[in-house]
Design a protein around this nucleic acid. Sequence first.
DNA 1: GCAAGGTTGACACAGTTCTGCTAACGTCGT
DNA 2: ACGACGTTAGCAGAACTGTGTCAACCTTGC
Lengths: 129, 129
Amino acid sequence: MSTQHGLTSLTIQEAAEITGWSARMLRYIESAGLVEPDRSVSGYRLYGPGHLQRLRTLKDLLGTYDIGLSDVGFAARLQAEPGLRAAVDGWLTTEPERPQDVPPASWLRWEQDKHQKLLNQPSLEKEIA
Amino acid sequence: MSTQHGLTSLTIQEAAEITGWSARMLRYIESAGLVEPDRSVSGYRLYGPGHLQRLRTLKDLLGTYDIGLSDVGFAARLQAEPGLRAAVDGWLTTEPERPQDVPPASWLRWEQDKHQKLLNQPSLEKEIA
DNA sequence: GCAAGGTTGACACAGTTCTGCTAACGTCGT
DNA sequence: ACGACGTTAGCAGAACTGTGTCAACCTTGC
């Protein structure tokens, strides 16, 4: 463990071990701008408690909803670019004309199929009887 | 043109020609649940004025902000799943601790680099002189 | 009834995403 | 000074995105 760097700053390997990510992924996540650790003078990444928490919750987030880092990145863009948010939300809420006929499972399915595509739910049959 | 199907319902080829998408893409967009045309009794896709408008604005949207269909799909999920929206927004707004040190260009850059990656800005050199 | 065009399904292929691994090189601790 | 570990850069590969194309099979218009 060697709690000697900064009293609560872990190196990338240590952070990797306790968060469950790989060191490689921590660098990738940083490149995505999602969790950016501090740096020591010599360039070493230093992960503090906040970073670790963020990394854990990020993992939960991706796992729970089956989304990807790029999705979170896009959500970040939505937050930061009000124009984008407005345009996208506007487009989405402008349903053609009749707001009844949308079976609310199609694109939902599509979006979810992306990551794990073995979701065999035995409901939703035809019941031709 | 043959305006004889339904008075304002175009077949996929016609819709493709006036919206600028290919027929292939119209089917793909439909599979994404983003623009779902009506169907004739025999199964032909029928695009009405609303669908056409939607297809055009969709094209604008993607072009203007350099996003992808999957991004719009994800935004749709955000709209439909309040839990997801809350979780993601929550994660994003929970910045580690100091909200000053985020250079607001990193992930923005990352997100935008996805589609066109030739943004050579001649600044940011080293000036070793 | 036949050509033009629609439908689904599949193969293909470039570009992205997410990950691992290796290389070449700098840093830290003893 | 040496080994463990960090840094960046790059190759690699599986899965997904965005498109085109082709096959096999219906529909429609004349």
